[in-house]
Write a protein that binds this DNA or RNA. Structure first.
Lengths: 340, 340
DNA sequence: CTGAAAGCGCTTACAG
DNA sequence: CTGAAAGCGCTTACAG
């Protein structure tokens, strides 16, 4: 391995000067900078990340804490983060959170404390009080993305507004019997209900429905999976007065709803309108109306925010809530028999 | 930050002894090990990854080189890798390969050479000759997963067998007019055609069809996307003699085929049988017959292999090709009018 | 602008 | 089994 000493020797300067010339930190004349760079280039020198980190205290590495890396949404976010951080010279190390208590303890008590990263991006993971506390004492800049904890500050979509927008779309089409399929956070989750995403979407649903007193509103709890959405929808459709529209709290739930409708011979959108949330990659295939959340862009912004916290970039990260947008497709339409 | 010196002082031993007691390397008496551990525990000591790496040469970190992290398949593989490596105390740093030449150069010439990792897992990424060469001089154990390069050794599915199995399934159902939708690697990609996955699947298709001389075989090239599959299928279905079955080289291609069939009013499986490859998470939702590749398990095995290369675990990694399995669902059936 | 020196926090031969 | 010492390869005050 070629070391900085080799480069310095080749350039005829001291190691210190070589370091300054290459990093751009501290003063150095244009001439020596040229010479050192040329030597480094010729020798194929690359600074050891590990030595550099130890000496400078800068790891040039950002940790991303994520459960469910294999869920499309988070994978997209991760891609966004990478696209923002790589050009700045930051590496990304992945901290995968599982349900295994021993694994979690090791992660929060050891892995995260090994000093490998300069900052942390925490993706929408339910965290215990203890885990939140451990993040707090890490002495690292932390950016959360949809983390349901007031202690972890970060970026979030206005999920209540999302719920309202989805519901308002159905109401505007003329629906007066709308069901919401979502997830109920347990009280023991430690999540702050005021920040919990499914809870907020449901709240938005309720707010919008309150504006239409003549409409019937119902809620069904389900897992955030295709199977969960399917079961919930089967239950709804089996009842005596099925709703004319369903607002599913995620696109995957919505896929399950579409499946249930198909199984039951319920025509979409003639007999049943369906709207999801996420902007999932296959939503277009299903012709599903949805609220796009731009997860890739969320990742980019989380990258912005952590860079800003590390003193890069210009000024403050945008504090505004993350954008979302209604994407109208073929699964929503006025209810049968309406004049809309 | 509490340092090893603090721990040593608290335990009444030298730093060297504390290090040995904590790491288990070198000799140390049970008694001092206990004492040191207790002190470390009490002080909440965690060794600095960076200092430890520099001193020992072991980073306890594995790099994963991946393009398209946000594709379901690779996200699943990544999850599998993480599940295998985390319990061994290895972190994972992500090296995302894009199409941007400047980014790629930086990745191969700098990022990967910073000495941050002990080994590399390279996921099914098309690599240029130059990039392969740069991997070679890295002086790091490397495990490829489906990398179409003889120089990068690693794990792979027998993709020819996959192609044969999918085709054989359709032939066994009685189909005699089968189209294969796949991807054509360009000659400039640098990929070894003998190892390229789409090429091998196609070869398997041809082999199986050769065994049924009375059957008509056709191939249509498409991007590995839903849209690509849809377009290819539309073309096939618009022709005078559409095939009775389509073997799509991926599940996402198959989704596009199903969409095209729906658009054209072609009943599946009555008028058209469809089979995909991957075992995609939504294949069940589409009731799609597919060849499951167990991507999570592939990740686990790649983890096994890199650990073995680093001297962990017992003995050699399994050299056997990765498993796959036909999952028969509702999109494949005998052709109309057959007696099968 | 440049160099000598100390130091980042560990690990590991080397003696004992 | 344990300790003193050197060293991993950089970076950064501190002088000049």
């Amino acid at each position: 391995m070629v070391s900085l000493d080799d480069v310095a020797r080749a350039a005829g300067v001291s190691t210190a000067t070589a370091s300054r010339a290459l990093s751009g930190r501290g003063r150095s004349s244009e001439a020596t900078r040229e010479r050192v760079r040329a030597a480094a280039e010729a020798l194929g020198y690359v600074a050891s990340a590990t030595a550099s980190s130890l000496a400078s205290g800068r790891a040039e590495n950002i940790g991303v804490v994520v459960a469910l890396i294999d869920r499309w949404f988070f994978a997209r976010v991760l891609d966004g983060i990478a696209s923002r951080l790589a050009p700045e010279g930051y590496d990304i190390t992945l901290y995968n959170v599982t349900d295994d208590p021993a694994q979690r303890r090791h992660l929060f008590e050891t892995s995260l404390r090994r000093g490998r990263v300069d900052g942390l991006i925490v993706l929408s993971t339910p965290l215990s009080d203890d885990e939140v506390a451990r993040l707090g004492v890490l002495d690292l800049p932390i950016v959360g993305l949809g983390v349901p904890r007031a202690e972890v500050d970060g970026l979030r979509v206005d999920d209540t507004a999302v719920g309202r927008a989805a519901t308002a779309h159905l109401l505007a089409l003329g629906h007066r019997d709308i069901a919401h399929i979502g997830f109920s956070v347990s009280d023991e989750s430690g999540s702050d209900p005021a920040l919990d995403i499914p809870t907020r979407r449901r709240r938005g649903f309720e707010q919008a429905m309150a504006d239409a007193p003549d409409a019937r509103a119902r809620f069904v709890a389900a897992d955030f999976t295709v199977a969960g959405g399917r079961q919930a929808a089967l239950d709804l459709l089996a009842g005596p007065n099925p709703p004319t529209a369903i607002f599913a709290a995620s696109d995957e739930l919505a896929y399950g709803v579409l499946q249930a409708a198909r199984d039951r011979g319920v025509a979409v959108p003639a007999d049943l309108s369906v709207i999801g949330v996420d902007g999932h990659e296959l939503a277009e295939l299903f012709d599903l109306t949805t609220i796009d959340q731009f997860p890739h862009d969320q990742g980019v912004r989380a990258g912005d925010a952590i860079l800003a916290a590390l003193g890069h970039g210009t000024g403050e990260p945008p504090a505004a809530p993350l954008p979302f947008a209604l994407v109208t497709r073929g699964t929503t339409a006025p209810p049968l028999g309406s004049n809309a």
